[in-house]
Design a protein around this nucleic acid. Structure first.
Length: 618
DNA sequence: ACACTGTGAGTTTTT
DNA sequence: CTCACAGTGT
């Protein structure tokens, strides 16, 4: 049977355990996605209906990949099978049930930028000092409350700041509701609220989703955990897969104790460890294990591989971040010459700011590169502008979109827009009437024409700046891309939901380029050669994480995630000095460098007149 | 309504 | 250093 071809014994065990709770502890490179997709295929082949299966992931990319692989396995396209992100699941539930909470079905989803604008408005209306009360920290606390399913009471009220925070929390939620809008955290929290207050609704969903699969279980927050476990409570067919050693989203309120406690939640659970690694060389794996085993709060799991020992790890000391970048480029050119394609190579770093010097080195060497996760398509001004009109058409309570439209049109034009929009009467007048029943694609075209948006862009960007023409052209190109995406939808609400939940840039260009990304964005990926730049104290581990053991251990997991991306070659680099915030600073090599087993590492210093002994490699 | 200028803050970021 | 933003000046 094709479904079990190419799977090892443990993977087969995981795929076959259909009934009851199953926990899979899947180490890095152990075939996690393969196991998940083969399990879905197996469920279907055993006669489980596709509509009874729910598979949840964290990213659209992971969901897409899973869909494609299931399709390929079965050789046919399965509809009615839910494979999607937590947030798209939440959006689906809310689209069906939100009316019982007093929202309208036409609700819109506010992304982080929208929430930020709303928060700024509220703070300025509250007349608070701008220095002490910033939208960022306030929103972060609100997100924490929502993702922990707590309430504003947990904020306390013993000082002025906390009182203001609690009051902000209430105003923020009230404003969202009156705008008939939900934020990202609401997409999880509100379905939980519905399920907890309306057992008959919960029952309906429990009966539908008889088989539940959750990817990256270690990254679930409290609300996601509760949502999934409510759904699974009736049939108990929950399949959770993940790796506590790769939990790196604690700062986003993920709680990896959810995966550690799975066996307490389900004492009858079947637990399978996937410990054979198919990705990395023995040396890379051993070194990574040495790092991760220093964590205290951890379940022991030892990856093994049949792969050869491979090359030693390379630890490089450079004089400064420039020398570091130059060395990396030199090595990449070598690898490229020996036949390794650029897309098989990655340069990883802890903070986005570090990409700059690497980019400069790439430009100088004329090497094509892509910075992953840097530009977000849907955050672009022109895209948000056009979408603001569409969102307003769908939901006239949306104050943030209306504010945005006001910003574009100015007060006077806005009046005529509103008059025209809501005008009643014959088919010739009233924009609202005219746009009724148009497809998303037609709507965008109509918006652009009606508001002369291209004219606005040209005026705004051509008159003053020297590159204005190019600028407005590229913005128009982006809108054309949005139109392309819209043409795949026939329903406005569906289109807007997808766009709101599609935060990352869509990868349209698949030419072979060097990858630059943060370690966080590299999770789930693999490369032949990996360069980790800036392995220094205060950067990795980050200075803000150095004060608590928990945060430090998350930094160590991050380092582990970075290292285990490598198949064949792994370089770790640090600079003696780094230019940071306009200041050149002396640095200390990362403690993680010190923790590497010496017999697996070649150390080389490119620094002037510098002798090793100060650095002890265990 | 827009350009200039000083100030201040600056991890990570799946959705 | 670099970006965002509030305040000022035209």
């Amino acid at each position: 049977m094709k479904i079990f071809d190419g799977l090892n014994d443990k993977q087969i065990e995981a795929v076959k355990a259909i009934d009851g709770p199953v926990l899979i502890l899947a180490g890095a490179g152990s075939g996690k996605t393969k196991t998940l997709t083969h399990r879905i295929a197996h469920l279907l082949s055993q006669g489980v209906s596709p509509e009874n299966i729910l598979a949840v992931t964290f990213t659209n990319k992971a969901a897409e990949e899973m869909k494609t692989r299931v399709q390929k396995l079965l050789g046919l396209n399965i509809t009615n099978l839910f494979i999607g992100t937590f947030h798209s699941l939440g959006a689906k539930i809310l689209r069906e049930e939100i009316e019982c909470l007093g929202y309208k079905k036409t609700f819109v989803i506010y992304d982080e930028d929208d929430s930020f604008s709303l928060a700024k408005d509220i703070l300025s209306e509250m007349n608070l000092s701008r220095d002490r009360f910033k939208p960022g920290p306030f929103l972060n606390l609100i997100s924490k409350i929502k993702s922990e399913l707590a309430d504003s009471g947990s904020l306390g009220a013993d000082d002025f700041y906390k009182k203001q925070l609690a009051s902000f929390y209430n105003i923020y939620n009230r404003r969202l509701k009156s705008a008939n809008a939900v934020d990202f955290d609401d997409l999880i929290m509100l379905p939980v609220k519905i399920y907890e207050s309306r057992p008959e609704i919960l029952k309906k969903y429990q009966e539908q989703y008889k088989y539940i699969l959750v990817d990256e279980y270690q990254d679930t927050n409290r609300a996601q955990y509760v949502l999934i476990n409510l759904l699974a409570r009736k049939n108990k067919n929950i399949f959770a897969i993940g790796d506590p050693d790769q939990a790196i989203y604690g700062w986003r309120h993920a709680d990896f104790r959810n995966i550690l406690n799975f066996e307490k939640d389900y004492p009858e659970a079947k637990v399978v460890k996937l410990e054979q690694n198919y990705r990395s060389s023995q040396n890379i794996l051993s070194a990574a294990h040495e790092i991760i085993s220093k964590n205290v709060e951890r379940k022991e799991k030892t990856l093994w591989t049949e792969n050869p020992a491979g090359a030693m790890l390379e630890v490089i000391e450079a004089n400064n971040e420039r020398a570091e970048a130059e060395f990396i480029l030199e090595k990449i050119l070598d690898l490229n010459k020996t036949g390794m394609n650029l897309d098989k190579i990655v340069v990883m770093y802890r903070t986005n700011a570090q990409s700059r010097v690497i980019e400069e080195a790439c430009l100088y060497a004329n090497l094509p590169y892509r910075v992953v996760g840097a530009v977000k398509f849907y955050q672009r001004k022109e895209i948000k502008d056009v979408l603001a009109y569409l969102r307003f058409i769908q939901n006239q309570d949306d104050e943030i979109s209306l504010k945005r439209i006001t910003g574009i049109l100015g007060k006077r034009l806005l009046q005529s827009f509103m008059a025209d929009f809501s005008a009643k009467g014959g088919p010739a007048s009233g924009w609202k009437k005219q746009t009724e029943g148009l497809s998303p694609k037609e709507l965008i075209k109509s918006v652009i024409k009606k508001t002369n948006y291209y004219g606005y862009l040209e005026k705004k960007f051509t008159d003053f700046s020297p590159d204005g023409e190019l600028e407005s052209e590229s913005r128009i190109k982006n809108i054309k891309e949005l139109i392309g995406l819209a043409s795949m939808h026939d329903n406005l609400s569906g289109f807007l939901t997808e766009v709101a939940l599609m935060q990352q840039e869509r990868d349209t260009d698949n030419s072979k380029k060097l990858n630059l990304m943060t370690i966080h964005s590299a999770k789930g990926l693999e490369f032949d050669a990996v360069f980790i730049a800036g392995a220094e104290e205060n950067l990795m581990p980050h200075s803000r994480a150095a004060y608590s053991l928990e945060e430090l251990e998350e930094e160590r997991r991050l380092c582990y995630v970075g290292m285990t991306r490598a198949k064949k070659y792994l370089w770790l680099l640090f600079a003696k000095q780094r230019f940071l915030w306009g200041e050149r600073k002396e640095t200390i090599p990362s403690r993680f460098i010190m923790e590497l087993p010496q017999h697996l590492v070649n150390f080389r210093s490119l620094a002037d007149g510098y002798n090793l002994p100060e650095i002890e490699l265990e």
